[in-house]
Structure formats: C-alpha cells, structure tokens
Simulated scan of single mutants.
Amino acid sequence: MEYLIIDAHAHLWEELKGSVAGKKVQSLGGGKAHFMGETKQMMPPYMVDGKNSVETLISNMDYARVAAAVITQEYIDGNQNQYVLESKQKFLGRLFVCGLAEVRKEGFITEIENMIEQGFDGIKIPAQWLTSLPERVFLTNKEMMSSFKLMEENNVILSIDLAPGDEQVPEMKEVIQEHPNLKIAIGHFGMANRPHWKKQIKLAENKNVRIESGGITWLFHNEFYPYPGAIKAIKEAIDLVGVDKLMWGSDYPRTMTAITYTMSHDFVLKTKELTLYEKKQFLGENAREFYGFTNLRPLEYVKNMVED
C-alpha cells in the first residue's frame, strides 16, 4: 500500500540563536550546541555550520518519502520567522509554516497581528517554558485569550507544546471552551510516557483539537527502534480519542541525532500492531485534512546503492 506521509512537526533555522531559562543556546559547529550550561549534540553532525536549512530538509523528505511538512518553532532555536516564510515560498505546496510568538513578555498580541498579516499558516507557542518563568504566564490571561480570538477569526492554527503531565490541561480546556472554532495541534504526543500524559491526549475529544507525535522517538529513546513503547502509546491514544485525531511528526532534526529521518516513521509503517487504515490516517491523511494540504501524492521510492 502506498502511503501519503506528512510530517506534522519539523524545524528549520538559519542560525541557532535561542534562549530558555535565561540561558542562551548557541551553535558550536559539527551539530553541537551550548544548551542549559552543557554541550549537547542538538542536530546531526552533518549540519556542520549550525544551519538547519530548508534545502537539507527537503532532500531528507524526498529520500524518506515525506510529501509535506509542518514547520513549527521553539524558543531553543530562536525566532526563525523570516526564514520559514522564505522557505515556504521556495517550496510552495510542501510546507505549512508557523510563526513563533514571544509570549514570555507582555505586548505579544501586536506581534501575532503582524504574523497573521504576513501570511503565516499557524502560530507556535512553546508553552512548556511558561510554567517555570519567575512570573508564570497563563494560557488564559487576557492577552493570550485575545490572541486566540484573532487566530480563530483568521483561521490560523495554534501549534502548542505543553508542560509534561496535566499542569496546563485546565488552562487548555478553558481556551478550547472559549474558542471552539480555533484549530489546535498539541505537540510531543502529550509527552507520552510521562505521568498523566493521557489527560493531554483527551483534549482531542474536542472537534478542532489534534495530537501530533513530534518527538515521540525521543520520549522512548531508551528503547530505540522499533520503539514498542511508542507503538503502545499510539494504540492507547487511538482507544482514547480515535485514530482520526492523531498525526505523525518527527521533531526533525533533533531526533535525527539518534536515528535517520526514514526510521522516524518506519517503525509505524512496519509494525503489525496497527491496521492499514490506522497507519494511513496517522501518517498523512489526518494532517492533509487538518492543515489543508492539496495536490499531494505519495512519493516514489528510490532504491539505495546497497540494494540489489
């Protein structure tokens, strides 16, 4: 069976220049970076100059037979708004791009208004960083709710990552109740394998909420491929909200420090624990419908040199 594969959680950056918890994130070359006081291998070693380019992503997508990708953002990487907009124009039809909102400081609604005018498809809020600020930022504060109303009125999708567990779930429930027509994609598969992760999954009981699996191979990295625990989590989420509310994501390129891009979805393709329909919906069809991709088709397989 030919599958349409869409990555619902990938990253791009022209220059790694982020900041979290008051500490800078800076590329050291060779895929390494200074992060939270340590040297980390934050990207594959072939990204020698610290640049995570759209050309490299598209090449990886073609090789892994990924037809399209949703470009999300993170405070770790720094604001890449201009670069992701340029990338979308360079590869029309293959990228859905989210602008990064700096909601850690007041006055961000003007920034969101500008991003909507610029033509961003979605707005990203890495909300997991908001709970540990010296003065916590709540998703239900006045400026946040006004921003969500703007997004709802302009059919702009909210891409959001939440803190592990259910700490921000009550806030999200209020957001969903107040803005029932706001389309929301919750990242990192609800931080599966952390305590109370299913409470994040159950937010997708609401009609406009979806869960994407960006980073699930990171969450289960101790198992390594073929990630039986991740498959189990996917099956449990299907039982909770149905497969049509779930989408595959890779968290490219961070997860590519341990595996290849192909491996990030191959463990789903090859498992016997999911039906053909479940694989089809999870790997691409749900994302195609939710993000509004058009004119996509499964990509042709190109044999490797090592194959007969």
Rank of each mutant, 00 (worst) to 15 (best):
Y3C: 05
L4K: 04
L4T: 02
D7P: 01
A8H: 03
A10K: 00
H11N: 07
W13V: 03
K17H: 12
K17W: 11
G18H: 01
A21V: 13
V25Q: 05
Q26V: 11
Q26T: 10
L28Y: 01
K32M: 14
A33I: 12
H34R: 15
E38V: 14
K40R: 12
Q41V: 13
M42A: 15
P44V: 02
P44R: 01
P45N: 14
M47F: 15
M47W: 07
V48M: 14
D49T: 05
S53R: 01
E55A: 04
T56P: 03
L57Y: 09
D62P: 09
Y63L: 12
R65Q: 10
V66P: 02
A67I: 04
A68F: 00
A69G: 08
T72S: 11
Y75R: 05
Y75W: 09
D77M: 15
G78W: 08
Q80V: 10
N81G: 10
S87Q: 01
K90Y: 14
L92R: 10
R94N: 07
V97A: 08
V97S: 10
E102C: 09
I109N: 09
T110I: 13
E113N: 06
D121N: 07
G122V: 02
I125R: 00
Q128S: 12
L130Q: 00
L130M: 10
L130N: 01
T131H: 10
L139S: 06
T140I: 07
N141L: 12
K142V: 15
K142L: 15
K142P: 11
K149Q: 12
K149S: 12
K149Y: 11
M151D: 04
E152K: 01
E153W: 00
N155H: 07
S159G: 10
D161T: 10
L162G: 01
G165E: 09
E167W: 15
M172P: 01
M172N: 08
Q177G: 05
E178Q: 13
P180H: 03
A185Y: 07
A185H: 11
I186V: 09
G187Y: 05
H188E: 07
F189H: 03
G190Y: 02
R194G: 04
H196Y: 11
W197Y: 09
K198R: 09
K199V: 12
Q200L: 08
I201S: 02
K202A: 09
N206E: 11
N206I: 09
K207V: 15
N208D: 15
R210T: 07
I211Y: 00
E212I: 06
G214V: 00
I216E: 03
I216A: 10
I216P: 02
H221A: 08
E223F: 13
Y225E: 09
G229V: 00
I234P: 00
I234E: 07
K235W: 02
A237G: 08
A237E: 06
D244P: 02
K245N: 04
L246A: 06
M247N: 02
W248E: 06
S250M: 04
Y252T: 11
Y252A: 04
I259R: 15
I259S: 14
H265E: 13
D266Y: 12
F267Q: 05
E273W: 04
L276H: 15
F282C: 11
L283M: 04
R288D: 14
Y291H: 06
N295V: 03
L296P: 00
L296S: 08
L299C: 05
E300G: 11
E300F: 11
E300H: 11
N304A: 15
D308E: 14
